[in-house]
């Protein structure tokens, strides 16, 4: 059995996390499933848990002149419903899971879980988002690339919580988002593709193919400079390390990425 901690506020949560090794539970939509067990037996949690979903201090969406600040405890449903946030971001979240899951699942959970198929990540990579981590004694700000260090691996220390995501305000001219799954809803991505054209040009992030999101500033530069299509495609091909698994094939994943890149580059002309 494991112990359950239910803090009254963020400070208490961070104090306890400084003193004990605790697994945060937000919406639980990843964690409860990973801790699955024979129905009716105790959940197979890997340690003691701390519940954070009810903490109001993690549930805010604000903006400054340059950025949106989104609390880690904001649910996917709240994210989708928030008019302040840009459409291209809300569209991504709106295609995740199902209405019931979106009511429970949090933004922080998707980021901290660091699944290779996590749908928020291509968006955050393309937007150059930053993750704010807090512990009792520290506050760190990491670019998303530095936070996500592998499949199910992040740079989070055990005593830290994700506090918020900083999403820079971009002047978006054009977007192309596509999530491929085995069906149209309530399904994990086989491939996900986010292309944005902002004031500084194209940004492309590819999810669910490699262990972590693929983003190459160098290739984006080549696209912006109108470099040869073939060299761009070859450049991306070299970065993709898809595999065959129970949901899809390497061939399919890589070909669809190439198709989407071509579509993006063609539409530009």
């Amino acid at each position: 059995m494991y112990k359950n901690y239910r803090p009254n506020n963020l400070k208490e949560a961070l104090d306890w996390m400084a003193e004990h090794k605790l697994i945060p539970v937000a919406g639980g939509t990843d964690l409860m499933i990973r801790a699955r067990n024979w129905q009716g037996a105790s959940r197979a949690m890997k340690g003691d848990v701390i519940y954070i979903q009810h903490l109001d201090e993690l549930r805010f969406i604000t903006e400054t002149e340059t950025d949106y600040h989104i609390g880690a405890g904001v649910t996917q449903a709240q994210f989708c419903q928030c008019d302040m946030l840009p459409d291209y971001a809300r569209e991504v979240v709106g295609q995740m899971a199902t209405p019931a899951i979106r009511n429970a699942a949090t933004i922080g959970g998707n980021i901290a879980n660091a699944a290779s198929v996590a749908d928020l990540l291509p968006l955050l990579y393309a937007a150059d988002a930053k993750i704010v981590l807090r512990s009792r004694d520290s506050r760190r700000v990491l670019p998303i690339q530095s936070f996500e260090i592998g499949k199910y691996k992040t740079a989070r220390r055990a005593d830290e919580l994700i506090f918020e995501v900083i999403l820079p305000k971009l002047e978006i001219r054009r977007t192309l988002y596509k999530k491929m799954g085995q069906r149209r809803a309530s399904i994990l991505s086989k491939v996900s593709f986010m292309a944005l054209e902002a004031e500084d040009g194209t940004r492309i992030a590819i999810g669910a193919v490699n262990d972590t999101v693929v983003r190459s500033k160098e290739l984006e530069k080549r696209i912006n400079e109108g470099g040869g299509v073939k060299s761009v495609l070859d450049g991306y091909k070299a970065l993709l390390h898809g595999s065959d698994d129970k949901r899809s094939t390497k061939r399919y994943r890589e070909r669809v990425v190439i198709n989407l890149l071509m579509k993006w580059m063609e539409e530009k002309r």
Binding site: T98, G181, Q182, R183, R184, A185, S186, I187, L188, K246, R247
Partner: peptide
């Protein structure tokens, strides 16, 4: 059987 979970064995949803 490789697809023995809901997340890998899809049946149509209302959206499909």
């Amino acid at each position: 059987i490789e697809q023995f979970t809901f997340s890998s064995y899809p049946i149509p949803t209302t959206m499909d």
